[in-house]
Structure formats: C-alpha cells, structure tokens
C-alpha cells in the first residue's frame, strides 16, 4: 500500500458515497445513468469473486464488500425506490456494445485462461468503459448537477491515482500488470474532457453545462 493507492481507493469510496448522498438527499436519481451503475455492479461482482478463494487483507476484503454492496444499493435506489425519477429516455446507451467486446477481449488477452482470471480481466476492461453511458447521458441532457459533477470527478480521479500507484510500484517493487495499466490509461483518458469542464466551470461555481 502506498499513498497513491490509498488516495485512489478513498477517492473511489468518496465517489460512491457522493452518489448515494445525491440520490438520498434529492430523493431523485435524475441525471444518473442506471446503465453505468449496472455495468459497475457487473465489474465489482466479476472482479471480486476471489473473495471466496483468496484472502489478501482485512482492508481488501472490507473494501470489496463495500463496493459490491453499495453498487447493489445504488441500483436498488434507482430501479426500485426512486424509479419514478429515473431518466430512462436519456439513458439510452446500449450496454451490450460494451459488454460483448470486453468479454471477447478478455477471452483473447488475459494473464491466464482460467474462469476467475478471465472474469477478472473482463472486469478490468469493462470498468475502463463503464462510465460511457453516464457521459453519454450528460452529453444528451447537456448539463449535470454539481454533486453529480463531484461524483464524476472523484470517480475519474481514482483510476488516475492508480496510474501513479502503478508507476510507483514498478519502481519500488518491480510489480506491474500490463492489462490493468493499459485499461486504466484508457479509463482515465475517457474522463479528460470532463476533467477540463470540471476544473474550468464547476470549481468556479458554475453549473456544468455543455455548449448547445
């Protein structure tokens, strides 16, 4: 564990908490893509299957359980409790266009051709693109509430901090995983346009609004 990794994990946790606060306080999931949330739940479940096979640390187990349970809770809030506020007309991204290619790529490029390893690889590829339905929704409506912007910023920062963690681990421990590094770089690049808008608009107190 190094400072970049810890900061990344905390940023990830913060993102999830911000999203739950936004939905709970406004009693609404308007502006949030249910498709992205479903993809994140698939990411966590397929990646953390090793919970039952490998023990790494109390921290590791705890965080995995938190990520799985909060993503299920988010889906429950969106599709059951606050269903009436869910913006499904704008949330029209076809997730099979992400799920199928990620799974095929995981079958082709992986560290080992075993079920758990293929699912881990699939989750890494899927996570890289899971935010696309959310970014698509923001671009369709042309705006995002400020708390949704903070959520997206924290979520994007998490993998960017992991990139720093991987650079650190390469030099400090000689550890690297090309699949995670490659997917993490793609994931971070997808947020760049949003990061720019966040820094130039939201941090100056303006609403995140895309030019018409």
């Amino acid at each position: 564990m190094n400072i970049f990794r810890l900061a990344g994990d905390l940023s990830h946790l913060l993102a999830i908490i911000l999203l739950l606060i936004k939905i709970w306080k406004t009693r609404s999931c308007a502006g949030i893509s249910g498709k992205s949330q479903i993809l994140f739940a698939i990411v966590y479940v397929s990646r953390y299957l090793d919970l039952v096979t490998t023990f790494i640390s109390v921290y590791n187990t705890f965080m995995k359980l938190v990520f799985i349970s909060t993503s299920v809770a988010t889906i429950y809030l969106m599709y059951v409790k606050f269903k009436a506020t869910y913006d499904h007309n704008h949330d029209s991204f076809r997730i099979e266009f992400l799920l199928v290619p990620c799974f095929l790529l995981a079958l082709l490029i992986n560290n080992a051709f075993t079920p758990l390893e293929i699912l881990w690889t699939f989750s890494i590829y899927l996570e890289a693109v899971a935010i696309l339905p959310q970014l698509f929704l923001v671009s369709k409506t042309g705006e995002a509430e400020s708390i949704t912007s903070h959520y997206l910023f924290a979520l994007g920062s998490y993998r960017a901090l992991y990139l720093l963690n991987w650079i650190y681990r390469y030099y400090a421990e000689g550890h690297y995983d090309l699949i995670a590094i490659f997917a993490g770089a793609i994931q971070t690049i997808l947020y760049c346009d949003f990061f720019y808008l966040y820094i130039t608009k939201v941090l100056k107190g303006k609403k995140l609004q895309l030019p018409a």
Binding site: R5, D9, H12, R47, D50, T54, I56, S57, N60, M63, K64, F67, N111, A112, W120, Y162, N165, H175, Y176, D177, L178, A180
Partner: peptide
C-alpha cells in the same frame, strides 16, 4: 509481472 500473484488491488 503479477501473472502468478493474486490481485491485491481493488
């Protein structure tokens, strides 16, 4: 590389 290691990251 981590090929043989468990995935210790989240």
């Amino acid at each position: 590389s981590s090929t043989k290691d468990a995935h210790d990251e989240l």
